[in-house]
């Protein structure tokens, strides 16, 4: 009874905050609502007995993804008013499409019945006396090793993609060359000079690091919007 009540409460909050994510005028509010939605979804998982998923959802989505979103939203000076420009225009069409889809899904729901052997076909039956995490771990690396590895490859590709599309090797950026650093010796970097008292150091005696290559003027940064102007400028026509 309590569980049912809790389910409906959490589900309601989840739906409302999901709607707010889309409709909130301030993007920061949107992200905050998103975090709220994640928390409620985690609660729903808990009610369903999937405590591992609930915790993962909180740690990964709330702890990492949503916060990242927040950073991005706050750091990028996105003109949300401009993005919302078409809102008025598309709203009626969108509403109509949504309404039709909704009615149809209701129809689908009307015809709902479980296949007689649905229970037996269910995936990943949890053996008795085994904790949620344990059960997941047992099948993840055995029965589902193929899918697990594939998911790993998907992540690898995502990483490569992020690097390919954003990493820029600028001429002006300074890299640490560990090999060169450790290869230095006192002999090459120190020179002992004897300076007469009161004479000061002659201008030529001051050693300054010689630039290896002539410096090129820094690349013009597009839009003046701080980091990575050009590659975010994929204009949406």
């Amino acid at each position: 009874m309590i569980a049912t009540l809790a389910f409906y409460v959490f589900a309601l909050i989840l739906l409302v905050s999901a709607a707010m994510v889309v409709t909130a005028r301030n993007p920061v509010h949107s992200v905050l609502f998103l975090i709220m939605a994640f928390f409620n979804a985690a609660a729903l998982f808990l009610i369903a007995g999937a405590e591992f998923l609930a915790m993962i959802l909180v740690i990964v989505y709330v702890g990492a993804v949503a916060v990242l979103f927040l950073f991005v939203v706050m750091m990028l000076d996105v003109n949300f008013a401009e993005l919302r420009e078409g809102y008025q225009r598309y709203a009626p069409v969108g509403a109509a499409v949504g309404a039709v889809l909704f009615v149809e899904l209701l129809m689908v729901l009307g015809g709902w019945h479980f296949a007689p052997d649905a229970a037996s076909l269910r995936l990943g039956q949890i053996p008795a006396g085994v904790s949620n995490t344990d059960a997941l771990g047992r099948v993840l690396y055995t029965d589902y090793v193929l899918l697990f590895q594939l998911a790993g490859l998907v992540l690898l590709v995502a990483m490569i993609g992020a690097i390919v599309l954003t990493l820029r090797d600028r001429k002006t950026s300074r890299h640490q060359d560990i090999g060169r650093q450790t290869a230095r010796s006192a002999a090459t970097s120190l020179r002992m000079v004897t300076v007469a008292i009161g004479a000061g150091v002659a201008p030529g005696d001051i050693l300054r690091p010689q630039p290896e290559a002539p410096l090129t003027p820094p690349e013009p940064v597009g839009g003046g919007a701080g980091h990575g102007g050009p590659h975010h400028a994929a204009e949406i026509r």
């Binding site: 899918l147 594939l150 998911a151 490859l153 998907v154 590709v157 995502a158 490569i160 993609g161 390919v164 599309l165 050009p230 590659h231 400028a233 994929a234 204009e235 949406i236 026509r237």
Partner: peptide, 26 residues
């Protein structure tokens, strides 16, 4: 689904590979 995503994700990146041209990133 996983096969499809692996394929798609790699191709999204490839489509934007000429990242300095507007059309490719678009």
């Amino acid at each position: 689904y996983l096969g499809l995503e692996l394929q798609s994700l790699a191709i999204y990146v490839l489509a934007a590979f000429a990242r300095d041209t507007l059309r490719s990133s678009e």
